[in-house]
Design a protein around this nucleic acid. Sequence first.
RNA 1: GCGGGGGUAGCUCAGCUGGAUAGAGCAACGGUUUUCUAAACCGUCGGUCACGGGUUCGAGUCCCGUCCCCUGCGCCA
Length: 587
Amino acid sequence: MVLPFNVAAEIENAVKAAAAQAGFDLALFAPDVRPADPAHGDFQANGVLAYAKRQKQNPRALATQLVGLIALPADTFAIEIAGPGFINFRLTPAALQDWLTKYDSEEHLRAAAASAYSGQTWIVDYSSPNTAKQMHVGHLRSAVIGEALCRLLAFSGAKVIRDNHIGDWGTQFGKIIWAYKRHLDKAALAADPLAEFERLYKVGHSASEADDAVMNEARQELVKLQAGDPENREIWHQIGAASLSAFQTIYDQLGIKFDLTLGESFYNDKVDQVYRELTACGLAEDSDGALVVFHDEHPRFSRHAERPQPFLVRKSDGASNYASTDLATILYRTEQIGATGAFYVVDKRQGDHFEQLFLTAKKWFEKTGRPFPRLEHVDFGTVLGEDGRPFKTKSGENIKLKDLLNEARERCFKLVTEKSPDIPEAERRNIAEVVGTGAVQYADLSQNRSSDYLFSWDKMISLEGNTAPYLLIAVARQYSIFRKVGLDPAAPLTGASAFETPTELALARKLVAFPSALNQAATSLRPHFLCTYLYELAGAFSTFYNADKVAVDEPGVRTRRLLLCARTLVWLETGLHLLGLRTLQRM
RNA sequence: GCGGGGGUAGCUCAGCUGGAUAGAGCAACGGUUUUCUAAACCGUCGGUCACGGGUUCGAGUCCCGUCCCCUGCGCCA
């Protein structure tokens, strides 16, 4: 038989078919196929155990019955039952080799990849910085995780729309315009507009913190801006242009290209409809002059809660806020873009906001007879410094993203110069850029996004452990081998003999698990599952590389080892590119 | 007070709807290069999975209780 790319899915189908034949209740039975510990097999199906428990039957007996019905040919899989009822599947060496021979390019992988999102249109709302300020380390995770998810979703069959929902309409503009009119330094504005806007923001912010009268004036400036006052509009426009141009430099480095940049201002003329409809359907009400939504069925968002926590959709001064524009945004994305749903890649501390937002939107859509899209808050934790507190400079300032990426590049340049002094400087600069940026991205992606993580230069730039440089060097070595033997890594390889050594077999088996890792990362929206897999794959390769010399004389051995290198190369590069990293042929 | 997340080796982290002997990396100690990049590889050491109960063939994972840490809770986003 010809194995499909996704071997686990093939086994899953076969087990499901056998279960149907055996009379299992398919509503309660899931095969649960996953890559196995190599000691047991290549894949295992654990679903029988859970099913037997529910049905109060002997799992071992059920597994035996099932295995007798599984229609997978013996020349492809060895199947056995172990322990209480695990079903283990091991590919025969010939099947393994056929699989590796057949699937050989990124395009091939893409076409064959599990189509977890096929036919769906997803908006990914990520990065979303505020204008008038430089991006800092707090903006790193949304950008890096968001981009990786976009690539994973697209690879899994989705149509992805990248939307940068910039904060270009919030209270900060009241403060900054207030300061602009009183404290503008024209020379500084000409020299570095974003830095000057940032300074003005700080002036306005501290003045309004210190003095309620200033706070009120700042609020009035915001109301004037939102009402279309020409002077305020012009200042606002300058700020936006300077900000976007600075953001783009960072995005270029991180490989990010947005399809849409529809910030809060875009929804300025769309929030009245929100107020009107929410009020008309009885969801929103006046509270101390503000328009708020309560959810009485909810323990905390109810008006009867001990400390009521309403969803505030319009401020008492009449200005819109995050909630108003977010509601308008959901409507726009549903009606104008026709999205299946939206993923919000936003700090987990905003969890309550999204819970209230989704709850409010759901009721609003139901009451107005609109189909409700799938909305999900893809949350992430905080980047911490070595002291376990949010990562800041020594003086307590936010670390600018630009400075962070520059430092990564500098550190890597020093390293590559030390390790590979013979490479010309221009190339070393490029290597430093790719490795440094990649190290920062990978450090962020390789940990479960929901947790906080400790930012450590030494750890992320290390060549040991689960790091970008470790994976990138594995890629560079594979290119090096192909340079050595004078072959194109993409060239077809024929005449391979059968895999023999334990390290060859271990690497080959690891390669087959790629679709499972990809699928797990894409469906759970957690890129670290892919990182873990790539790290294990690179580890299996490194072990193989040290144990089995590729460029040997015997043509059969040489070809089969080149085959392993060629596939590992495509797998690693595809995986790293899906994460948003670039790869190198030499470092 | 109420909510959310967390506590796994000295440190940083994995552990996928309960599954096979709880895994990596760092640190410590020892070894490998006339051979494709030693930026690598191999080995040793290291665990009361916060604590106490419970559920069952089986619990780091589920339930109950306790302690500790982070985090959110009206006009910020």
